[in-house]
Structure formats: C-alpha cells, structure tokens
Computed example of a mutant assay.
Amino acid sequence: MGCDGGTIPKRHELVKGPKKVEKVDKNAELIARWSYCALSQEKLRRPIVACELGRLYNKDAVIEYLLDKSAERPNTEVAVHIRGIKDVKELNLTDNPAWEGERMNSKGDRYEDLHCAMFICPVVGLEMNGKHKFCYLQTCGCVFSERALREVKTEICHKCGDPFQESDIIILNGSKEEVERLREKMDEKRAKAKAGKKSKKSKAAEAISKSEDVKEGSDSPKTSSSEPRPVAQKGEAASCSGQGPSGTSSASKCVKPTSAAGSKRSIQDMEGKSEAYKSLFTSHSSAKRTKDQTSNWVTHTPYHF
C-alpha cells in the first residue's frame, strides 16, 4: 500500500469526505457592502445615491444603467426595481475627519484599520463601516445612525432641519428581513401612486364631459334667442296692447302681420323723411347716372366717372 519512495498515505488522503463550507470573511463582506457600489462594484465616490431598499450606488453608474438597460453588466438584478432617477435619493453624507484617504498606507509599513470609514454620523459620531446600523431620510437624504434617531427623538432633521415622518426612514444595507419589509413598503407606495394617477385621470375626464354637456345645454337656448327679431315699426307698436291683464307689458305677445315680415320698405317711399336725408342713399335719383354719363368702352385703368 505504499507509494513510490516508501511513503505511507493516510486515510484522509485516500478517502474523500464532505466538503467544508467556505466561510465568508465578515470584514470583507462589510467592506464590499459599505465601500463599493452595489451595481458597478467600484469604490463609492460622491455623488452617492441610495434606493428604496437601502442599497448604495454611485450616481453615474445608475445613470449609465438607466440609459442603456440592454447592455451586459454584472449584478444588474440589484437594480431591477429602479425605473428612473426619481427612484433613488442622493445622500447628504458627513465626512470622517480621521479618514486619510485610500493611499494612507501606500508603502505597507503601517497598520491599516479596515474599520475606519469615510463617513460618520453627525450626531453621535459613529463611523459608517457596517458595524452600526445607519439610515437615511427620503425627504432630504441626510444620513444618521439608528442610535441617533432612537436616542434623540424628533420630527425635524438633525442636520438640515427639514420635517420628516417615521415612514421616511430607510435603513441602509439592512438584513434580509428588513429588506423584505422595505420591498413591501415600496410596492404599497407605488400601488397607491398608480391608483391616485388613475383617479386623477378619471376625474379630469368627468370634468371635461361635464363641461361639454354644460356647453351643449347653454348653446341650445342661445341659438333660439339669437335669432333676429323683426323690428317693430311705429304703426305696429300702436296696434299692440299696452298692458296685459296682470298689469305687465304684453309687447312680447304682439303678433306682426305676415305682409310686414316678408316685405321690405324703401327709404325713398317713406313720407316722414326729408329729401336731404333721402339723398344720402344710393337709391336716390341724384345718385343714378344717365346714359350720357355712362361710358361705352372698357379700359385697363379707367379714370372716368
């Protein structure tokens, strides 16, 4: 049972047992979630945005994804719920004064603290490295630790002073249960917004239909009332009775003879008009030309009268 060279193998070298479960380094997992973009896997750099599920992204990576969703990119499933730039919120982060940058240990001759983060909580001073829960406000985008919001209870943002509600608090990089709760909350919010848009459209359509009905109803009496009424002459006005039985004027009930409605009277035939007034109209005898005054030829630009 020996191998070449007289070596004797042991049992674990010949019998294959079950594979050991590979354990993920917790420090590496925290650094990947809090220091790198969830979509492009690049280092987080300003401007940094967060979605409604609490994931961190670089804003330029989200814009590139929205401009061309058909391009082949890794980890696109983490951004499926992002429909537009309005579905993400730009974060208002507080810089960590102890952060020396990415090249603080370029020579490799000093201790590198992996838990030192770029950003901190402006109220408590905790570093945003994944060991403590952090959240942001959907109203203004300011980021705080959960301890700060729990200990200092207020309805006004600690940093910018904008009012907010408890439903506006989104946990960053939460657990699976917290992500599921945020997803249900997001679905409910979008369903309500969709229902509100439908109700607004239906109300607008009803208002338009009502206005059209009102216009049609108002047009029908106008057409009947806008018909030209024949002008009553002096002789006809005298024939109408002055007052009705109740004392009111009954001029509207006067009926004109058919001969007056169908015939047109000439001004020249009116007896009460003076000759000077009648001469103002073209129907007067002075306005008519005689045969001697009319021309019997046609010119291009006639200047005769």
Rank of each mutant, 00 (worst) to 15 (best):
H81M: 15
L91G: 08
G101M: 02
Y111T: 15
I85M: 13
G101T: 03
Y111G: 06
E100S: 01
G84Y: 09
R83E: 15
E90D: 08
A98I: 08
G101F: 00
I82T: 06
A98K: 06
D113E: 12
Y111V: 15
T94Y: 01
D113G: 10
K89M: 09
N92T: 12
K107H: 03
G84F: 10
I82C: 11
K107N: 07
K107L: 01
M104N: 03
L91W: 07
S106P: 06
K86Q: 11
I85Y: 14
G101E: 04
T94Q: 04
R103G: 07
S106H: 04
P97T: 14
I85H: 14
E90V: 13
R103W: 02
D87N: 09
L93P: 01
E100A: 04
N92K: 14
N105Y: 00
R110I: 01
R103S: 12
K107S: 03
M104C: 07
K107P: 01
E112A: 13
D109S: 03
Y111Q: 13
D87S: 15
Y111E: 14
G84N: 08
H81T: 12
V88E: 09
T94M: 03
E112Y: 02
W99G: 00
H81K: 15
E102R: 06
S106D: 09
N96W: 04
I85T: 12
R83L: 15
E112C: 07
E102Q: 13
M104K: 01
E100I: 03
M104S: 06
E90N: 11
L91V: 15
E112S: 08
I85C: 10
W99F: 05
M104W: 00
P97F: 02
I85S: 15
V88D: 10
H81G: 14
Y111M: 13
L93E: 06
D109I: 08
E112I: 05
D87V: 06
P97Q: 14
K107Y: 00
R110Y: 00
E112M: 09
K86T: 14
G101Y: 00
D87T: 07
S106K: 05
R103N: 14
K89I: 13
K86H: 15
S106C: 14
G84P: 05
E112W: 01
N105L: 02
E112K: 04
K89R: 11
T94D: 03
S106A: 10
M104H: 02
T94S: 06
E90A: 15
E90W: 13
R110Q: 05
H81Y: 08
A98S: 10
P97R: 08
T94R: 03
S106G: 07
V88N: 09
K107A: 01
R110T: 04
K86P: 10
N96F: 06
I85P: 10
K107E: 01
S106T: 09
E102H: 08
D95S: 14
D109G: 03
E112V: 09
E112N: 09
P97C: 11
E90P: 14
L114W: 05
S106Y: 03
R83Y: 13
P97W: 02
E90G: 12
M104T: 07
L93A: 10
W99Y: 11
I82G: 06
